[in-house]
Design a protein around this nucleic acid. Structure first.
Lengths: 338, 338
DNA sequence: CGTAACAAATGAAACGATTCAAAGACGAGT
DNA sequence: ACTCGTCTTTGAATCGTTTCATTTGTTACG
């Protein structure tokens, strides 16, 4: 019995027709008690396990939902993913997670893969311009929900957080504690980051003598943050910004590592620092990190809900849910005047 | 064209036989240049995408590898997962990640699921006693590699890190900096944790006046760590341990949050603190956290390699690779005498 | 002109489940 | 005894690929 038994083997062993075995599995009420017992016994004896590929093939659809995120190592995304998985489980579906690593070709790779798998639907936090591909997917009956990015409602549903508002909140806060020369650290080529920057710039625009400098981090990890931090340390004190707003907490923690490593720059006295996402680790940073909190569980859960709505409507009705982020003040931006 | 085109549709459109289309896809050399072009053109025009379910069904096996981890939110596991994914990609396979959340029933759920998917193999960081099930899987031709847990080599392969040694290193270090009353925080019901504790106890046993107290954290997250930390803060100073060894960095960071929140306990002066895993965030903690580093990339990569070996040998040859952990000293255990 | 050798294309069978129209079993009612 | 209705069971058809034994087409050579 080194090979897996098929439904046919079970049927033979239990001396019934294959249809009956299938019924035991899918519509137990249709089968008489006696036969059911006999079939179940055979299933146990042969160690029969359904072949999902055959099931899917016949059904024409899988019970699988694809999720493509920018970086699973980022607690923001792993939290969203987890919430999505939980929500999917209650619907009897499974979530496959793909990590694009902010690389458009890896993103495309996973989209191809998920298409081959005939996923029920796709949740994606896009890197490149995926509008075209999403249209194609919709035509083929694969609904898509954008995650962490506002969608054109004509096209598909989305769950997102108001990034511009978040950026505004962060910069406003830095200005409120008296800082004027701000720096923004991030990769503005990513749309969320660009929006956060835009919001920050709006806040800066409201204060006459304030300015904001953009430092492209070329990445969104602790490591790339550290590089930016090093470049800040190398500057002469007059040239350093008074406050730094990082487009996510990983970057902020990296910057913080650099700044605190060399003892010359103090946080928040010399440079106030704020991140984005409010990951669990923000609070336990060297200097507890101020941040912009995003409702990750709600994002993941809602994404699945919207996908279900899409499926029910046959991909015709789209809805966009936008959450509002929240400022969390900690020591890294404790008022210089306080 | 709202429905997905099948290989048959392509064949009709290109005016060839289905077998030819299949050959274009799988054995391009067998097909003449002219037909190939015609078929490829049809594929593009119809937007044909292979149906993986049908492929698998025919092949009898998927190109999928299952990975079950204890907690994807834990950077240790997400790092291992990432390394495994990368290694699998070079072999043309995909990794499905399941999160057992240290729950045996969720673990069983994912094992069932992966079996239905007919995965090529299974990588698992087990919660419960899975020996039995692994035997069954092997009989059915699904090789298994234990991850982060030493396996009985008669049974299956494994990649792990010497947890007892790691525990010994951690406790030895605490003793070396002069601490005598130690506490261990973790959930000893998990085998890795139990081994780390055992190693720590061995180190303590080598010093006559040293002792170690075990605090069951009932979980391995930042949150549960914070609870334990609170209970420590409530103790009178004489009753508090002089050093705390947490079975992972998440717990340690949680403990650190509690201890530093209330300003009454200083790290490392009053309580020295060491974690385990050396996640990226350890270095950027309030007090940079000492830890035991595990080679996560090597774990993930080797797991895939061993799986490949198992497949080649038909599941007969097993091998266990054990890595050695490394002590990383940071400020949270900076010598009190220094 | 015949045929051997090789290349290219064909299409039926198989994978393992689900579905569904049809057949079978059984009892109740007349 | 016959019919009707209900409950169970049957087994062929189907999903979309891949495989492989055959057939068809082409070229080279005697």
């Amino acid at each position: 019995m080194s090979q897996t038994a098929s439904i046919k083997d079970v049927a033979t062993h239990a001396q019934v027709a294959v249809g009956t075995v299938s019924n035991v599995l899918n519509y137990p009420d249709r089968v008489s008690q006696r036969t059911k017992e006999r079939v179940l016994k055979s299933i146990a004896e042969l160690g029969f396990v359904r072949n999902d590929a055959a099931r899917q093939l016949r059904a024409g659809q899988s019970r699988t939902i694809g999720l493509i995120v920018l970086d699973v190592g980022n607690p923001f995304f792993s939290s969203v993913a987890r919430a999505a998985e939980d929500a999917a489980t209650t619907l009897g579906s499974v979530v496959l997670v793909g990590d694009s690593g902010q690389d458009a070709s890896r993103e495309a790779h996973y989209m191809d893969l998920f298409q081959e798998q005939r996923v029920q639907g796709l949740l994606i936090s896009p890197v490149g311009d995926v509008g075209q591909r999403i249209d194609t997917l919709r035509e083929r009956g694969v609904p898509t929900v954008l995650v962490d990015e506002l969608a054109d409602t004509e096209r598909c549903s989305s769950v997102s957080v108001d990034d511009e508002e978040g950026g505004y909140l962060a910069a406003k806060h830095l200005l409120d504690i008296g800082r004027r020369r701000l720096a923004f650290v991030g990769t503005p080529s990513i749309r969320q980051v660009a929006s956060r920057l835009k919001g920050a710039q709006r806040a800066v625009g409201e204060v006459s003598d304030a300015s904001i400098e953009v430092l492209d981090s070329e990445g969104q990890t602790v490591l790339t943050g550290r590089k930016v931090g090093n470049s800040l340390v190398e500057r002469s004190p007059e040239e350093r910004p008074e406050a730094v707003f990082c487009s996510n907490d990983l970057l902020a923690l990296g910057v913080m590592q650099s700044l605190t490593m060399l003892r010359t720059v103090r946080i928040p006295e010399d440079i106030a620092l704020i991140g984005y996402d409010d990951i669990d680790f923000a609070i336990s940073a060297v200097v507890p990190l101020s941040s912009i909190r995003q409702p990750t569980e709600a994002l993941g859960r809602t994404a699945i809900e919207l996908l279900a709505e899409e499926q029910e409507s046959g991909g015709t009705k789209h809805r966009s849910v936008v959450f509002t982020p929240e400022l969390v003040v900690r020591q890294s931006t404790a008022g210089a005047d306080s």
